[in-house]
Amino acid sequence: MKKETIDVSQAIVKIDSCGLTYKGKKLELGTPIEDWIKVLGKPSRDTDLAYVWDDLGIAVDDWQNNNKEVAGVYIFFLNLDSPEGKSQQLNHARDFESGENIAARNMEGGKSLITDDQVKKFNAENELKKKNYIYPFKVYKDVVNLNGFPVKAGMKVEEINSYRADLPYSGKFGYVDEDIDGVNDSGTTTETFGGDYRAPGAECKDGRLQYYELTYTATKKLEYLKIGYESKSDYDSRKVSEASFEERKEKK
């Protein structure tokens, strides 16, 4: 694949093997949410999933660690105002749908069964509901510098991987096999489709992994980039598995 030259040197968000910087200020996963608020400012909202900065297009999750330490950062390239957001395609908003989409789904004899007034009512209710979702009111517009290579709105996973092929280690994004059957459910390993892709990361704070995930909609649009921090339970399980593997090697 021919790669476009994308300058990441001035990116607002720069993600390193451990942690990231926002406008040059260092942030680390596994640290208290208060440290992030000092850099990002006061969050716009606190949802069930994350703290949301509506003007930045960013959300920060601390609930998975149960100790107010940051477990993940989401950088959003789509939100509820996108065509995907209005048609129940976003990963954390499957129940959100615009009045126009509802009207289009309820056609009879070439005419919608939903009136214009009902469409307006649905949309007015949606405006009130938006604050309950993780999606920022504004999407992230800039390119993200991920390990020295670009991630930005509209990029397909194969394009992102074409840059990451230059990494000195295996850092490509691979399909996450949700049903654990060992099969890429898209039927292909080279094209983007709806779902999650994960890239390996490095051991960081307390020996826990920092990893990366791309989530795509069914329409193959990049929804968000997540920078995740391995949970304590996953860390413990991984260490047990690694110790067991080393023990088996020694017995051979």
Rank of each mutant, 00 (worst) to 15 (best):
K152L: 15
Y163S: 01
D142R: 01
F96P: 00
A103S: 14
D95H: 07
D117Q: 14
E125Q: 12
A153F: 04
K156H: 12
Y133R: 05
I102S: 06
G174M: 07
P150M: 11
L113M: 15
L167W: 02
Y169I: 10
F173S: 00
F122T: 10
Y175Q: 01
H92Q: 10
P150T: 01
K138V: 05
V176I: 10
K156V: 03
K121G: 02
E127S: 07
Y163G: 00
I134L: 09
E108R: 08
F149L: 02
G154W: 02
L128V: 14
L90E: 02
V143F: 10
I114L: 13
R105A: 08
G99H: 09
K111Y: 14
Q118G: 09
S87Y: 01
E97N: 03
I102H: 05
V143N: 04
S162Y: 00
Y135P: 13
G148A: 04
V143S: 12
H92I: 02
Q88V: 01
I134W: 03
K172H: 09
F96K: 04
E159S: 02
N145W: 06
P150E: 06
D117R: 11
F173E: 02
K152V: 05
E159F: 01
I134C: 07
V157G: 03
F149W: 07
N132S: 14
L128I: 14
G171E: 02
K129C: 09
F173D: 02
A103H: 08
G110T: 05
D166I: 00
Y169W: 15
Y135S: 13
N123K: 07
K131C: 06
I160S: 07
A124W: 03
V151P: 10
A165N: 05
G154A: 06
M107F: 10
D117T: 12
N126K: 11
N106S: 07
Q118F: 10
N101M: 15
I160W: 07
Y133A: 09
F122Q: 11
S170P: 05
L113H: 05
N147H: 14
K121V: 06
M107K: 14
K131S: 13
S98M: 08
D166G: 00
G174P: 00
F149G: 00
L167M: 13
L128P: 02
S162K: 01
A104E: 15
E127Y: 03
L90S: 04
N101Q: 15
S87K: 13
P168S: 09
